[in-house]
Write a protein that binds this DNA or RNA. Structure first.
Lengths: 148, 148
DNA sequence: CTTGACCTTCCCATCACGGGAAGCTTTAGG
DNA sequence: CCTAAAGCTTCCCGTGATGGGAAGGTCAAG
């Protein structure tokens, strides 16, 4: 199985498979004499695992830990659960930040006439509101993309 | 007013002020003979506007548009409102994606014993669940960071 | 006159990819 | 058998919005 087939079978692009190999997330497969990567069913299985972890918002590093837990047949399920719950907490924190933005912006939009006149509390607020001190804009970890 | 004072007064780091200038988001200020940037009160005002727009999850490019709307005294408030509502829609879409992750992961975690035994439906599902086709992982636009 | 705080530009790293070039290999068709 | 296309290889660049830091100039206080 060449990289193209593995990509189709796993849903991970060939580009990403090579990338995951380069950062040591997945193992380097055997090669043909010509240098082509050759994948087995197990490799596709691993790639699907990675893809699903990414879809759940786990970063590459977190996915690496999940893979280690997966391969460690003797780990306690409590460890995995704690990991998952911590991640849920992070996701919820980001949701909270986004909801705060929606709330503020919704508030402003609500007070905007939305007609042909130029007065607009949205821009006025952006221009004049006090600078909030510890304003939070969340990290990139576990972030989410379109067109997966 | 040097860049350091402008940074303190606006809450935008000196590094970012130079960056915003380099991409044409803000205008290049006058310089002293020695090459130091000199800012006026209006510049700080603009920087605060930018910071607040960013805090509300607007990307740099969206912030550029907001600045143009702000400076255009004759624009209709309806234009601004539509812009804000569209952005709210995008934020809500991202919230929805994150909530879907939380839901799935919460489901899995709920079914995990979380004890000393190794069986764990979380990892089992990651390993065996079917590959979802159009899985969505959201874009980087308007993303949010920690430690603002 | 020195020290240290501030400023300047420039380059590098992040994170998780995608695009594309240049060049080799394999496969299918005539 | 030869050719064209598809597929593979590596390598480099760009993304968005920052932070870090080096190397060097400037300014104000002691």
């Amino acid at each position: 199985m060449n990289i193209g087939q593995a990509a189709t079978a796993s849903g991970v692009s060939a580009k990403m498979i090579r990338y995951y190999e380069s950062i040591g997330l997945i193992e380097a497969p055997v090669r043909t004499e010509a240098g082509y990567r050759v994948y087995a069913g197990d490799d596709v299985h691993t790639l699907r695992f990675v893809k699903r972890a990414r879809n759940l918002g786990f970063s590459i590093e977190e996915t690496r830990e999940l893979l280690a837990l997966w391969r460690d047949k003797s780990r306690a399920s409590a460890d995995v659960k704690a990991f998952a719950l911590r991640h849920i907490g992070e996701l919820e924190a980001r949701i909270g930040e986004l909801q705060a933005m929606v709330k503020t912006l919704g508030h402003l939009a609500h007070h905007c006439h939305g007609d042909g006149r130029p007065d607009c509390p949205i821009l006025e607020d952006l221009a004049d509101a006090p600078v909030r001190q510890g304003a939070v804009r969340a990290g990139s970890r576990g972030r989410v993309r379109h067109h997966a």
